[in-house]
């Protein structure tokens, strides 16, 4: 029998768990196909499929799924409701599966995470639908989790070292799926690097550290990824400036970033990206922000 191929889109859920699923499937002897970094075609394709008002990140997610359509045996599409009651997700995460099923014909490998189901349940769900023996699933799960942890630790260590540097430092507060996306974040990162600015990512810190710290800025916040990202602000007190990066029209960031901006007293840049953003406009805004940092 030929090896089964599972397609994983390099968009929203990839940035929290993509590595885990990659090593998990490898341990189980299943091929993994990642979609390439976001291209303009994917954005256009996603925008064509989705309703107009859907957020750009979600459009990109659909674009990636569309790229993988027909190129693999299964698409990995989760449905993530919450990790616990104070760590929920955006409602888009709840509709991944049903939307993907509506738009695409490739069979879907689906796992569900909510109050009752954690990552282990998800791994068991996926494993059993591919009829992998239980012991192998558990073994693969352990190894994959260990590998992911190790990677996160190294990332975190690097960040902490960067914090001690003397250069001008900027913290990017954003969801991982925005700042690391090739379409949304890459221009900003390139511009900052050209200006010799050290970049710290809010999502590269460990969630265990940042998540509890979020309450210093917002007591009643109940979204996991927002908590993780704004929790990095009290952690990085000696950065020179903060960049808030979000996509249009992100429901969570529209409220959370506004609240945080009202509470911090540091230079900040609030960037909202949509699929019509012009590069020159971005350049002007980043340059004036960098000038501001150099004067302070």
């Amino acid at each position: 029998m030929d090896k089964v191929t599972v397609g994983i889109p390099r968009a929203i859920p990839y940035y929290d768990g993509g590595e885990f699923w990659k090593s998990f499937f490898q341990q189980c002897g299943i091929n993994v196909l990642f979609s390439p970094p976001t291209t303009k075609e994917m954005v256009d394709r996603g925008s064509f499929l989705a309703p107009d008002e859907m957020c750009l990140s979600m459009k990109i997610y659909l674009g990636h799924l569309d790229y993988l359509e027909g190129k693999c045996d299964y698409l990995l599409v989760p449905r993530i409701d919450r990790f616990d009651d104070t760590n929920q997700t955006c409602t888009n995460f709840l509709s991944f599966y049903d939307l993907a099923k509506h738009y695409f014909k490739t069979p879907i490998l689906n796992y569900n995470m909510d109050n009752q189901n954690d990552l282990l349940d998800a791994a068991l769900e996926i494993g059993s639908s591919l009829s992998i023996p239980g012991i192998q699933i558990l073994k693969a799960y352990e190894i994959a989790l260990e590998k992911e942890k190790e990677k996160k630790k190294i990332r975190n260590q690097k960040q902490l070292e960067l914090l001690k540097e003397k250069q001008k430092k900027v913290l990017i507060v954003s969801h991982a799926y925005n700042v690391h996306d090739a379409f949304i974040g890459s221009e900003l990162l390139k511009l900052l690097k050209e200006n010799n600015i050290t970049i710290l990512y809010s999502d590269y810190f460990l969630s265990e550290d940042t998540n509890p710290l979020a309450s210093t800025l917002s007591k009643k916040l109940y979204w996991k990824y927002s908590k993780d990202s704004i929790g990095s602000i009290p952690l990085c007190e000696n950065v020179d400036g903060i960049v808030f990066l979000s996509t249009f029209p992100c429901g969570l960031d529209s409220l959370v970033h506004e609240l945080v901006i009202r509470k911090i007293n540091k230079p900040y840049l609030n960037l909202v990206i949509d699929n019509l953003s012009s590069f020159t406009g971005l350049e002007t805004r980043v340059e004036s922000f960098v000038d501001l940092l150099e004067q302070s």
Partner: peptide, 15 residues
């Protein structure tokens, strides 16, 4: 405008 859950439901309602 921008009601996220409803935007997700719109394609399915249409279907």
């Amino acid at each position: 405008s921008f009601c996220t859950p409803e935007i997700g439901a719109m394609p399915l309602i249409e279907k």
